[in-house]
């Protein structure tokens, strides 16, 4: 029988743990398929494809497989960016409780784009914090700073808190901080070292846990149908296995503590986290901006927003 080769796109760089999990998934599938199927992972965007275009490229069949991240598809499917936002959770454990709903929504939505979802990688719930040149650990301190954020929703959120922020791509962040185009970066503190943030900022203050959209393994329908039922089963099982494995590891206080210690050794001064009051203000602003974004995204956006709100209201209580 002919060997099927599927090329799989992933935007995430190999120094991140998510990339290792993805490679493990591919390796295990390839081994079990005994030469009938080979999944070749192209890490760090090395297939030359940008995430913004991924939905339409999966739909047309130009890309066979991809590790998909719903937030990136705002241009083509704004409702997918309105599923989950920063500020939705304030405790890492909450993420695990919301996860089944998030997964359900994305699986439905991807199916509409002609994509079969086979498990995925649950992103580790990293710390999100403010990385600044000056000691900044309150919203008040932030008000006279220029802030770098990673998405439009965050600009809206900080706007409501009277903080001037702008979206700066990760590649421009280092120089922007170094030269002072911005004073602070809102970033995933746990992996700040991979982009050398400690070299251009001195202080760090924790704000909230990362509300991370899961990385789902997507296969376009044409490629999926080219697989025999046995191969489909193998891919499904391994994807599911990776989902379970990474979900168990997603919340890990020990990992976060270690990472924090590493950053302190690199010379970062750890400030007291933002006060509960500030966090509450942030959450409120984020929720307002979330509702607006969902509204702008149309009926689907509102539907997803409401489903998530229902789950969130059940947290803790």
């Amino acid at each position: 029988q002919d060997k099927v080769e599927l090329k799989m796109h992933s935007q995430i760089v190999e120094s991140r743990p998510e990339a290792e999990y993805l490679q493990e998934f591919a390796d295990r599938v390839n081994e079990r398929a005994e030469g009938e199927l080979e999944i070749r992972v192209f890490h760090a965007g090395s297939l030359g494809v940008k995430d913004t275009d991924l939905l339409r490229l999966m739909k047309s069949g130009s890309v066979d497989m991809a590790m998909m991240y719903g937030e990136y598809y705002k241009r083509d499917a704004p409702e997918l960016a309105a599923v989950y936002v920063q500020g939705a959770i304030t405790e890492p454990e909450h993420h695990l409780e919301l996860l089944p709903t998030i997964r359900e929504i994305y699986e439905e939505a991807y199916a509409d784009w002609g994509v079969t979802t086979v498990g995925g990688v649950v992103s580790p719930v990293f710390d999100v914090g403010l990385h600044c040149n000056d000691p900044v650990n309150s919203l008040e301190d932030l008000q006279d700073k220029k802030l770098r954020v990673w998405a439009g929703h965050l600009v809206d959120t900080f706007d409501k808190l009277d903080v001037a922020s702008q979206v700066i791509p990760q590649n421009d962040m280092y120089v922007a901080l170094q030269t002072g185009v911005v004073d602070c970066a809102y970033y995933l503190s746990t992996v700040a070292e991979t982009v050398s943030l400690q070299e251009v900022t001195d202080y760090e203050a924790y704000l909230h846990p990362w509300a991370a959209v899961p990385w789902m393994f997507g296969v376009n329908d044409e490629a999926w149908d080219s697989l025999s039922p046995e191969l489909q089963e193998i891919v499904r099982e391994e994807g599911e296995r990776m989902w379970e494995k990474t979900r168990e590891r997603a919340v890990d206080e020990e990992r976060e503590r270690e990472a924090r210690k590493d950053r302190e050794e690199l010379g970062i001064t750890m400030l007291e986290p933002f006060s509960d009051e500030d966090v509450a203000k942030f959450v409120e602003a984020a929720n307002e901006a979330w509702a607006e974004m969902a509204e702008d995204a149309g009926p689907k956006g509102v539907e997803y927003y409401e489903r998530m709100q229902e789950e969130i209201s059940e947290l803790d209580r």
Binding site: R75, D76, A151, G152, V167
Partner: peptide, 8 residues
């Protein structure tokens, strides 16, 4: 068809 809009 899908009324694609810019991000920000």
């Amino acid at each position: 068809e899908i009324t694609a809009r810019s991000d920000i």
